[in-house]
Amino acid sequence: MRRLGYKPHALIEALHTVQETFGYIDEDALKYLSRALRIPLSQVYGVATFYHYFSMKPQGKHTCVVCMGTACYIKGTGQILNNLENAYSIKAGETTPDGGLSLLTARCLGACGIAPAVVLDGVVIGHADPAHFNARVEEKLKQ
């Protein structure tokens, strides 16, 4: 915080820092930022919800980010996402009730050259095969 100089324009930087440290941004953090940077509460909330990169909920133990960029979509990530949604009965952006898996989507990972791409626990998997991807996630969850 001190590094950011307590200036109102540091809000987005500060939100990044909170998310990086805690994995998500909770209400207390928002209140703290509002006070420290002297920005109205509603404005802090408005900014935090405008940017989809910020998450207000804790993530699951494992995360799976399906790329929904054009190239990946053309090559079948829509199907990968569908399969996962059905298998775990959650929608993109949600976490399974047991906190095991968070299913997320991204707007292009910049890995179109190896489409379709999915990021499983931080590792980019290129040329993902729609037919066998569920099994791969299942394996991960067992670990």
Partner: peptide, 20 residues
Amino acid sequence: AGAFVCGEETALLASIEGKR
């Protein structure tokens, strides 16, 4: 932070200023 519209120049400036 994951907002396509921030590529638009005036939105980008607002974002650098820490706003929506």
